[in-house]
Design a protein around this nucleic acid. Sequence first.
DNA 1: CGCATTTGACCGGCGC
DNA 2: GCGCCGGTCAAATGCG
Length: 301
Amino acid sequence: MSSEEKNPFQYNPFNYNEQRGIPAGSVFPFLNDGPSPVQTIQGSDPLYMSFTESLSMDYNTLSRAFCMPAICSSSEVISPIQAYFSREIGAPAGADENTSTPDSSSISSPSNDAATQQGAAGKSKEKQQPKEYEDAKENSNNKVKKKKKEKKEREARFAFLTKSEIDHLEDGYRWRKYGQKAVKNSPYPRSYYRCTSQKCTVKKRVERSFQDPSMVITTYEGKHNHQCPATLRANYAAAAILSPNSLLASTSSMTSISHQSFPQELLLPPYDINNQCEPSADMLYPSQQQLHLLPADDFVP
DNA sequence: CGCATTTGACCGGCGC
DNA sequence: GCGCCGGTCAAATGCG
């Protein structure tokens, strides 16, 4: 809030990097096997870099975990960012205001799951949702208590920048938009989406960077408890490819389509439905251990 | 008609 | 305590 007013530019994590003189355009090695060039930005900030690097080291895992558009047909993932919003970061650390902390409403800082698992330092302002809301409806009496309790059980988040003209990127899942809000210090609104699958509480936020309108900041929250619809198709396509003679010829066009939409998933082995979209914490956050090695205090310059 | 989107209202957390 | 803000709800509307 006030911090945003002071540092409106800190809003944009991309800018955050740029301001630090971070060269853009470096390619994630782990994405080299991908069909599309995915560019990212590696931070020069030891802290940030260690985080992003740790992320990058297993971005495939992350993207797999979220079945997210690691590579979108019409976009480039510029930078995966572990999301841990606003006051969680900005505030505490007193995190270098001059260098503009990736802040609030949007992106994040390296802390996500570490903090999440630690109860997010309990300072989250973020309400913990879906469950919360359902519980609230079902148990109005315990509403407050539950909220407070669950508040600590923050959903894991993962944010990344994508260069795209399209706000809502196709990631294989079906989403229902349930809200849109104007973002402070940004002419672009933030859209809120919820996975349409039953009992799936995954949400995502999509907003366009006001610093670079070509960049879309997508934040995923939670874990899918179902298989990615697109993966089914992708697996089918992959099977077609691997499968001799069969469909190969006839599916060439199909795989091409799949490739365009969900190229990465074609590179992934078929997943057990239980693992597909509900990865372990380690899977989701391979950098977890590193994060633990980088407690909040360490982020303070 | 069913589903998705839009949009104003509402709520809770946080800073001052 | 008040105001701001982010996040969500839900009625209205649009669309296929």
